[in-house]
Write a protein that binds this DNA or RNA. Structure first.
Ligand SMILES: Nc1ccn([C@H]2C[C@H](O)[C@@H](COP(=O)(O)OP(=O)(O)OP(=O)(O)O)O2)c(=O)n1
Ligand SMILES: [Mg+2]
Ligand SMILES: [Mg+2]
Length: 882
DNA sequence: ATCCTCCCCTAC
DNA sequence: TAAGGTAGGGGAGGAT
């Protein structure tokens, strides 16, 4: 039927066997299938050509861990290499890096670079991260299918869908032994250990080994028990990567609809292929894979992805199989349900309990019944799959929704130093992966495997054994990929766990709510919030009119609004309804420094030398002399914001300071009543939220006096640098004195009166203080900014977690801390001193919030009193079996 | 209904 | 001795 492939494969002969006869179900075995292969082609021309071939780490920082040297490391233990002649070039990359000195040489207790070394040697890490490397390597070519090239003969006939599924045979073994013909017929497996008592896992076993019942995932001791002469070979991740690349190069060459499944497996939609016969195409592809890689692949051909995948199983090893539509029913009838993709041991077990072990039996159950029992989608899947129905389409890999790293092996800790070091390394890994993928994340989940109280040392060496799975998560307002932010977050999250570190058997950090790095500055920077009045008004409308806020995100910020942000005449910091037109000038690139004479020398000189130096640089070195001049004059510049000098009446009337002064400041906001208090951050978004005291100077002194000594000292430390607060220290230092020389605006805001528990005050101080500082900062920055609109953004976009179960204090601080970070990124030098003060205060407060886990004991009762036993809602406990 | 969050399950 | 990761699908249950 098929004589020749059109192109380079004229040696292909497998033809006849491939015709869809024989009841439409064809299994072409190796002997029939394989063409005469020059003996040398298996062994000779696919040698690793050099180290650079292994350097997959350059593709992407994701692959930390598969660098050339380690990737093919054949470790020192001679016995492990038993199957391989010593003089063979295979061991050129051998290196012995393992110290056998210690008690537990492969635990977090001993190795400071444990995470890195672990990932270098983890097969699951390799296959788990492969997809991202593929994404990167074939990004341009797989970015949507190009139909034109695939439809060369589409004008003629509308073909029936034809799917090919290709999968390499015993991939990890095949790649390693491809140059060792003497091993081809022996039972061979890839494993870290060759010990007959070892608990290392078999990664892949070749087909001779499978005859002994050896399977991937099995302990090597069990494999050896079944087959004592089983040959164990080492991993060679660099070689796997290289063969996978060759594999996909070939697939892409023959088909433009390729869906990668894994490093050794893909679906092809060959409906519109130039090659009319999918079976011929499959054989051509398989031959080319063998010629190029020296490894065999099997293929399944069918009308849909499900049947193609099942056909591959039948085809293996080194064969191909076509399942015609007529044969689908017969094929499935006796097929164990467990074989269907998507049915794992849990689902299979549930079905078995209902006497359902084959697809034929499954078909008897009604769809409704299946959906009721297993859920709508799963029920649908079971019903369809048992009939060979699969409506999925071959498609490109979608952009990733989450990125994470975890280690559940070799994890043993003695103290929090150990855990901190480990978490830092985990953060490093995750940060690099985020950067490698060009994304930032907003949601972070820390997972911990905790040894069950009744579980002893695991059977598996350095394994996790029987564990509870615990997790906490948090969402921050500003997406990040930065190591230090990640560390703060993980430290905080870790604090939520109440756990004896010695019980920890594994930890992982997962990041979701990913945003593209390229788009983030446009979308999320503070700059983007300082949009022109007209845009802002439009958005305000949206916020009030829409109940679904998320829709708005994408529409924010026309490019035209950017770069027209800054105003030298500030509008009010706090007023949600002000329709002030902002004079606008300046842009992110061209930040205009305030004139030297606008700087408050009193503030400047109170800054640390390095910051002064920095500002001095900004002014081309003129600042120093300016300061000297002022010092000699002994006349401080009088330009105070609060004096409202040189400010238009309109602006003045909007300024919070003025509003307070003239008793127009709406202090009467209430956060619920006494019986049902509403926390500030969970209060409904309204103007009131923005109506806070306009600066820390409004804080009621009696409240300040209540604060713990160390917190007061912190505040004191910052006060001198802030003009508005210059008069406060006296009151703080002399709490008994009445408030002469008190700040300009002493609040009667009820938020600050009364005598609530101390932690509440700290919380309020941090929230209100930060908001106030922000209001002030914006005012001084010369930007028009409606604080309420910022807050609305934060709340409406749900960038601040409002759920009970997260610590509001932490949330407020981390939220605002991120804001300040963004603010700093803008490098608005106008207000560097305020920013500096904010940063330091935030940092201190944030450090406190990190302590949450430690002070948990004192706070928890309050939280529980407020929120009931549900507090800790983010603490999720579930179980995992060994 | 449709969303979101916190899990478990699955595949390689 | 030994490297039990990774990411998407989807169910349960609550909020809207
Ligand atoms: N539990 C597992 C499953 C797979 N793998 C690795 C080794 C395999 O070689 C590779 C590909 O997985 P396959 O399921 O395709 O298995 P093989 O290619 O080894 O065998 P087969 O011929 O059945 O495809 O992934 C692994 O390390 N551990
Ligand atoms: Mg395979
Ligand atoms: Mg596979």
């Amino acid at each position: 039927m098929v004589a020749n492939c059109p192109e380079q494969c004229d040696s292909t002969e497998q033809v006849d066997q491939c015709s869809p006869e024989f009841d439409g179900l064809l299994h072409v075995g190796p002997t029939e299938m394989i063409l005469e292969m020059p003996a040398c082609s298996v062994g000779s021309h696919c040698e690793p050509k050099g180290a650079e071939l292994y350097d997959i780490s350059r593709l992407d920082r994701i692959n930390t861990g598969f660098e050339p040297k380690s990737s093919s490391s054949c470790q020192a233990s001679a016995s492990v290499c038993s199957g391989i002649p010593d003089d063979h070039n295979f061991k050129e990359s051998s290196s012995s890096r393992i110290s056998l000195a210690s008690n537990q040489p492969h635990s977090t207790l001993v190795d400071p670079d444990f995470v890195e070394n672990y990932f270098k040697n983890s097969r699951l890490h390799f296959i788990g991260t492969w997809r991202n490397r593929y994404r990167k390597r074939f990004h341009s070519s797989s970015d949507g299918f190009r139909d034109k090239s695939s439809c060369l003969n589409a004008s003629a006939v509308v073909h029936k869908t034809a799917i090919i599924h290709v999968d390499m045979d015993c991939f990890f073994v095949a790649v390693v032994i491809k140059n060792h013909p003497e091993l081809q017929d022996k039972p061979v497996a890839v494993c870290h250990s060759d010990s007959p008592r070892g608990t290392a896992e078999i990664s892949s076993a070749n087909y001779p080994a499978r005859d002994y019942g050896i399977k991937a995932g099995m302990f090597v001791k069990d494999a050896k028990a079944r087959c004592p002469h089983l040959v164990i070979v080492h991993y060679d991740f660099g070689a796997y990567e290289k063969v996978a690349d060759q594999f996909y190069d070939i697939l892409h060459k023959h088909c433009n609809k390729v869906q990668a499944v894994s490093c050794d497996e893909a679906f092809l939609d060959v409906t519109n292929s130039r090659v009319e016969d999918p079976q011929l195409l499959a054989s051509v592809i398989r031959k080319e894979i063998l010629d190029t890689t020296g490894c065999t692949a099997s293929a399944g051909i069918a009308e849909n992805m499900l049947m193609a995948r099942l056909a591959t199983k039948t085809a293996k090893p080194d064969g191909q199989c076509y399942i015609s539509p007529e044969k689908v029913n017969d094929y499935l009838c006796e097929l164990p349900v467990r074989v269907l993709p998507g049915i794992g041991h849990v689902l299979a077990e549930k079905l078995k309990k209902r006497q359902i072990e084959t697809c034929g039996r499954l078909r008897v159950i009604s769809k409704e019944s299946l959906q009721k029992e297993f859920g709508v989608k799963t029920g649908d899947m079971l019903w369809n799959y048992s009939r060979g129905i699969d409506n999925r389409h071959v498609g490109v890999i979608k952009e990733s929704k989450s990125i994470g790293a975890e280690v559940n092996w070799g994890v043993r800790f003695r103290n929090t130093n150990d855990t901190q070091r480990f978490l830092t390394n985990l953060c490093k890994e995750v940060s690099l992966r985020l950067q490698g993928c060009g994304v930032l994340g907003r949601s972070f989940t820390l997972k911990i495997k905790k040894r069950r109280s009744d579980a002893g040392e695991p059977i598996k060496y350095m394994g996790h054994g029987d564990c509870e799975n615990l997790s906490h998560s948090i969402t921050i307002p500003m997406a990040t990929d930065e190591l230090d932010v990640l560390q703060r977050i993980t430290t905080k999250l870790f604090g939520y766990f109440q756990i004896d570190v010695e019980d920890i058997r594994g930890m992982g950090l997962q990041v979701s709510k990913l945003e593209n790095t390229d788009n983030v500055h446009q979308r999320n920077s503070i700059l983007s919030w300082l949009v022109s009045t007209s845009t802002k008004d439009r958005e305000q409308e949206k916020f009030t009119n829409h109940t679904k806020h998320n829709d708005i995100v994408g529409e924010l910020n026309c490019e035209g609004d950017r770069g027209q942000l800054c105003s030298n005449h500030a509008g009010p910091s706090v007023r949600s309804d002000a329709g002030l037109s902002a004079g606008v000038s300046g842009s992110r690139q061209g930040v205009i420094l305030p004139p030297l004479h606008d700087l408050d020398v009193g503030v400047i000189v109170s800054l640390p030398p390095d910051v002064i130096a920095e500002i001095n640089d900004m002014y081309g070195g003129e600042l120093t002399s300016f300061i000297s001049k002022y010092k000699s004059d002994m006349n401080m510049p009088a330009m105070s914001v609060d004096s409202f000098e040189g400010v238009t009446a309109e602006e003045k009337e909007c300024h919070p300071s003025y509003l307070v002064q003239s008793n127009k400041f709406p202090f009467d906001i209430k956060y619920g009543d006494e019986e049902t208090p509403i926390r500030p951050f969970s209060a409904p978004v309204s103007e009131n939220i923005a109506v806070m005291p306009s600066s820390l100077s409004q804080v009621d002194h009696s409240v300040l006096q209540q604060l713990p000594q160390d917190l007061r000292e912190d505040i004191l430390e910052f006060l001198p640098a802030h003009r508005r607060l210059e008069s406060v220290p006296d009151a703080l230092l002399n709490p008994s004195e009445n408030q002469t020389g008190s700040p300009q605006f002493v609040s009667t805001n009820e938020l600050w009166v009364g005598n609530p528990p101390l932690w509440v005050d700290k919380f309020k101080l941090s929230c209100c203080g930060m908001l106030n500082l922000f209001a002030e900062m914006y005012y001084r920055s010369g930007h028009t900014c409606h604080l309420s609109s910022i807050l609305q953004r934060l709340f409406c976009e749900q960038r601040v977690p409002l759920d009970v179960g997260t610590n509001e204090w932490d949330d407020a601080v981390s939220c605002l801390c991120e804001l300040v970070k963004q603010y700093l990124e803008l490098k608005i030098q106008t207000d560097i001193e305020e920013v500096y003060v904010c940063i330091r205060l935030l940092r201190r407060l944030n450090e406190r919030s990190k302590l949450f886990g430690l002070v948990c004991d004192s706070i928890l009762p309050h939280l529980q009193a407020s929120f009931g036993e549900n507090y800790g809602g983010t603490l999720n406990v579930s179980s995992v079996k060994d």
